[in-house]
Simulated scan of single mutants.
Amino acid sequence: MASSMGGMFPGQQSSGQIPVGGAGGPGQPGFPGPGGFPPRAPENNTLVDELEASFEACFASLVSQDFVNGTDQEEIRTGVDQCIQKFLDVARQTECFFLQKRLQLSVQKPEQVLKEDVSELRNELQRKEMLVQKHLAKLHHWQQVLDDVSGQQRKPTDLPPPGPLAFLEQASASLPPAPLKPN
């Protein structure tokens, strides 16, 4: 999988590297530079580098003295909007890159995608089982509280038979029957 992501991270070479930059990029006219951050060489930029640079530019535009001391609110708003738009554009490109790699993986190794899906389903089932156990514990607790309160008012012969399933039997007796689903 690392070879399929060539060019995405620094130090990797790839002929399929997605070009980044363009009008309004860092260091270009009309786009505030990342104040205090060194300029990046455009030929070595990857999407991750470009995303990081655009984030730094957004952050720098919000804390830059030029914008803080500026008197023209419209100019400040325009600069910040440009930074945020550039960041969102690069984020979409990065998302697209990962979606393309995911598609390639699903075509080349469909069993890997199935394994991931099965793993996610197992985790979901485990999470839901823990949630059911938590609710059963709360149900048992409140059933005992209710029994304690109502036990003071009723006779000892009315108590349910002792046992671990007594509260489940009592709780399920008040539930309506589930409708049958046609196969």
Rank of each mutant, 00 (worst) to 15 (best):
F87Y: 15
L88S: 10
D89C: 01
V90G: 01
A91H: 02
A91K: 05
R92M: 06
R92V: 05
Q93K: 13
E95A: 10
E95Q: 10
C96W: 02
F97Q: 08
F97G: 00
L99T: 04
L99V: 02
L99S: 08
L99F: 11
Q100A: 13
Q100S: 15
K101D: 14
K101F: 01
R102K: 11
L103H: 14
Q104H: 15
Q104R: 15
Q104I: 12
Q104L: 13
Q104M: 15
L105D: 09
L105H: 15
L105Q: 10
V107T: 13
Q108K: 06
Q108N: 12
K109Q: 14
P110D: 05
P110A: 07
P110S: 12
E111A: 02
Q112P: 00
L114V: 10
K115Y: 09
D117V: 11
V118H: 04
V118Y: 06
E120G: 05
L121Y: 08
L121E: 12
R122W: 06
R122G: 00
L125K: 08
L125R: 12
Q126T: 04
Q126S: 08
R127L: 07
K128N: 12
E129I: 03
V132F: 06
Q133C: 01
Q133I: 00
Q133E: 03
Q133T: 04
K134A: 06
K134N: 01
K134C: 05
H135G: 00
